[in-house]
Design a protein around this nucleic acid. Sequence first.
DNA 1: GTGGTCTAGACCACG
DNA 2: GTGGTCTAGACCACC
Lengths: 123, 123, 123, 123
Amino acid sequence: MIQIDYQDKRPLYEQVIEKLQNLIVIGVLDIDSKLPSVRNLAIDLSINPNTIQRAYQELERMGFIYTVKGRGNFVASDTQWRNTEKDNKLKDFKEILNQLNRLSISKEELCDIIEEIYSKEEI
Amino acid sequence: MIQIDYQDKRPLYEQVIEKLQNLIVIGVLDIDSKLPSVRNLAIDLSINPNTIQRAYQELERMGFIYTVKGRGNFVASDTQWRNTEKDNKLKDFKEILNQLNRLSISKEELCDIIEEIYSKEEI
Amino acid sequence: MIQIDYQDKRPLYEQVIEKLQNLIVIGVLDIDSKLPSVRNLAIDLSINPNTIQRAYQELERMGFIYTVKGRGNFVASDTQWRNTEKDNKLKDFKEILNQLNRLSISKEELCDIIEEIYSKEEI
Amino acid sequence: MIQIDYQDKRPLYEQVIEKLQNLIVIGVLDIDSKLPSVRNLAIDLSINPNTIQRAYQELERMGFIYTVKGRGNFVASDTQWRNTEKDNKLKDFKEILNQLNRLSISKEELCDIIEEIYSKEEI
DNA sequence: GTGGTCTAGACCACG
DNA sequence: GTGGTCTAGACCACC
């Protein structure tokens, strides 16, 4: 399902969070579908269950999944996280625009890149 | 000159690097102008000289400054770093575009933001 | 009749208790009216009958319902619970008032909210 | 500084969070003052350092404290949490008002209690 | 079997 | 010495 990169310097649980979050946002994991149990995923990645537990907990706090005791963890509806995600990403977008502006990169160049990316993904 | 944010989780030297790099890119620090000495900046920020030393070393490696033994550290010419910077930022830009695309944010919305940022900065 | 919220962290039987208690206090369920049988409600909510059983037991202990063996569970008269409820809620009210006071929220602001709530509900 | 109540059924870290949060909101702990180290507080309460660690982490996430690696944990400025706190408490206030309304408790009775609490605390 | 909490003990990064 | 991460292993509540 996901894979740990031991070259990555960040804590393991952050990696797990990021990877699962990505799968959810992209839509690979359907809403209300069950995630692997804490223990199974731990065995699968051969890391400690506590680490997975912590990742799941954070993901719940962030609104990406919800937990039902004794049943498992499930993907939350996108109404929970879509707006937060959108806001965060737009903020990042503005930040990087400012930096590009300082490096005197033209609006036209950026618009071209936008066209390129958006047409690529439509395929 | 710069200020440490103790709420920032990253290592101190990274903060120092980022802040100095920013001052150079924006153009606050002129090319060939002298940076504060390792010791002075350390006293100024009341952190360990080793931390500043490490930051300066990294900045030199990245091509933002050059060191003259016994005389100090100086801002390198932009030919050294401008292209690298541009490439890095454009890569970041593309990455975030992909993410925004996945969240189904329209090209038009992004172009509006570009206009906004670029007109604001022209003032 | 009632609905389970699987995002709620509390044990299921607590949810059932709270929801039934609410229906009784609001007056949706009349005094001496029959509650659904343990089994039916269990099937209805697709949870284990034991959970409903436990909820009914607690509600009886609290004086909200009474059980007649072989016949079912019935809503108790409000003389049984009204005063207890009132006392509990007033204690909660005082507790939160203290907290609001510490955050220097003015009496006037609170009185405005009271007016608002009470007029809304009168409609 | 604080005390654990082993009768309390909630997780230990929640108790620690609540108690420290309270000390901060009331103003017993000044802004930027240092909290006990993870290990010291753990010894003091004779519980595991991980438990304290978790409590501190949550408090940081909530904006009540900030952490500086290698230095310790410090009380954050109230601009970080005052508004959040106020919003939360007002929501609780409205919730309980609705319940009191349903129990037909008069506005006047509530206003009297407000007067009582607010005059008591002014002393 | 599921998640949730807690302990004990280890190692690391930072200053 | 400080916080941060991770492991191993235990026990609990809920279903």
